[in-house]
Simulated scan of single mutants.
Amino acid sequence: MAPAYVCMILFMFMLASSHSAAVTSAAILVTVDQSGNGDYEKIQDAINAVPSDNKELFFIMVKPGIYKEKIVVPADKPFITISGSKANGTIITWNESGEIFESPTFTVLASDFGARYLTIQNTYGPGAKAVALRVSGDRAAFFGCRISSYQDTLLDDTGRHYYKNCYIEGAVDFIFGNAASLFERCHLHTLSEGDAAITAQRRESPSEDTGFTFLGCKITGVRTAVLGRPWGAYSRVVFALTYMSNVVLPQGWDDWGDVSKQSTVFYREYKCYGPGANAEKRVGWSGKLTDNEAQLFLTKNMIGGKSWIRSIPTRFKKASTKHA
């Protein structure tokens, strides 16, 4: 990778960073370039080179290209960030259907993971479960990424997660799982052609501190959809300050054919707007948050994010050796 390219990208990252968590140590910079001008030609090879039980920050910079890879970030490799320069130029793609833990294009098992300006897609299409991204580690953050599939796009499985300025596309339960996650200024685009759900949150007991919050987001689509349905009996989803196009059906929510869940789910909206936000015909077992109730959902405090969401590193060093 040419030095001028590295300097340009790092300068852009530093300008784009606005997060409060400070990084005091230099990150180890690793480059991936399909043309052979980086440290590695494949993203997975760069991940594999990170030591087990790693304690240092690794910043894997991926040069634009289409990377046909099935990626796994193992649980014993924390503190990795993988970044492109812009999402529509750095594309990680796979085509596979199957069970939700087996089909993902990109799987994150490690804690303290970050991704920036990547497209992560599963191109399988309709007809089966086909996960694009599975996030099963704690303290994972995604900035400016594009995540797309059709059914079960984003398995937001377990842990605390933060998504900012991401584009997420799918048709059926395309944001699902039992993580505690904040989606800020994200664009949700539903491919549903009827009444499929955007979310399927799986909170299974009132003692679980999990749920999805969508803050300042935008919902568009091709036809119509509902905001969510309960994968777990205590499913918790909040939409706040979100623009809803007329793709959102008037009833807003679905009980997945189990009326008993109507008394246990927590489905709330707060100061949403647009033609799909009209609450007159919403199901009676959803509701609106008061100003006081909404405060919990309007900051990163709900996921403890101020203590772990990292800024772009401002100092870099190269790895001491290049692994084969």
Rank of each mutant, 00 (worst) to 15 (best):
A21K: 15
Y273S: 09
G114F: 04
V131Y: 05
S320G: 13
A2S: 13
D112Q: 15
I9G: 03
K77W: 08
F59D: 10
C145S: 08
V6N: 13
D254C: 09
G304W: 02
S52Y: 11
Y273W: 09
R185V: 11
F13Q: 06
E102L: 12
A233D: 07
K306G: 14
R229T: 11
Q34G: 15
D209W: 02
S149G: 12
G89N: 08
C272M: 09
I47G: 08
R134V: 00
D291V: 12
I219L: 15
C7K: 10
F174G: 07
A22T: 14
D195L: 14
C145W: 02
G159W: 04
A4P: 11
G177P: 04
M302A: 01
I80W: 02
S192L: 15
G276H: 01
G257Q: 05
K288E: 13
S20P: 13
A319L: 02
K271P: 12
V265C: 01
Q121Y: 03
A319I: 06
P64S: 02
P104Y: 01
L289A: 00
A87L: 06
F176Y: 07
S17A: 01
M302K: 03
A132E: 08
I82F: 04
T314A: 05
F316V: 02
W256K: 08
W285S: 03
V73M: 04
R282Q: 09
F214L: 02
G137I: 04
F59N: 05
L296T: 09
G284E: 05
Y267M: 00
V73A: 05
N292Y: 05
A2E: 14
E99K: 15
T220F: 04
I47K: 04
I82C: 06
S97Y: 13
K281R: 14
A130Y: 03
A22S: 13
I147A: 05
A46P: 14
A128V: 05
I66N: 13
T290V: 03
S97M: 12
K129G: 03
A21I: 06
I175A: 07
F101W: 14
Y40A: 10
Y243K: 15
T31V: 07
D39Q: 07
V248T: 07
V62S: 06
T314F: 11
E280L: 14
A21W: 12
K63F: 11
A277Q: 00
K129E: 06
I309E: 00
E293G: 11
W308L: 08
E184G: 02
K288L: 13
G194H: 14
